[in-house]
């Protein structure tokens, strides 16, 4: 099994973040959804460019981290750089769901599924 942390890249993590070890903003947690607001420009740090390409559709922080093969904390630093420069937007999935539920006009599928429905599905599957 190839570990994500295997040391076969000359990049050290502190050079990726420029020596920082904590994100400037606290806006990100593991499931924060990130959407890029612009395309990568030449000369950009490769990780930033990769994030921008990856996040054309909303992508969770943890997915970005797995995709880049970097620790989540490092990714958060990179993301907060991008957030500061306005290249990405971030939002929390729960707030989205809550907002959707609160609005009657929203399609039903936008709501987070009700736990009881999920339970019923589970039971149904088991009964097959």
């Amino acid at each position: 099994m190839i570990r994500p942390g295997r040391d076969d890249d000359p990049d050290r993590l502190y050079t990726v973040t420029g020596g920082r070890s904590r994100a400037a903003s606290k806006d990100f947690d593991l499931v924060t959804l990130v959407v890029s607001e612009c395309d990568p420009v030449p000369g950009m740090q490769s990780e930033h460019a990769a994030i921008l390409r990856m996040c054309r559709y909303p992508t969770a922080v943890v997915e970005i981290a797995a995709e880049l093969g970097l620790p989540v904390s490092i990714v958060k630093i990179l993301l907060s750089d991008l957030l500061d420069s306005g290249r990405i937007t971030a939002r929390h999935p729960q707030t989205t769901g809550a907002a959707a539920r609160g609005r009657p006009g929203q399609p039903v599928a936008a709501q987070l599924p009700d736990p009881t429905i999920l339970e019923q599905v589970l039971v149904g599957l088991r009964n097959l």
Binding site: R3, R6, Y14, T17, S21, S73, I74
Partner: peptide, 29 residues
Amino acid sequence: ATSMLADLRDMEHRHSDEEVLADLLHLDH
């Protein structure tokens, strides 16, 4: 040094605590 760097990178992936990560990055450097 090479194996230490590899170990450190492993640890950096394992520990998400920012304090620990800062120390690990320092050691890494």
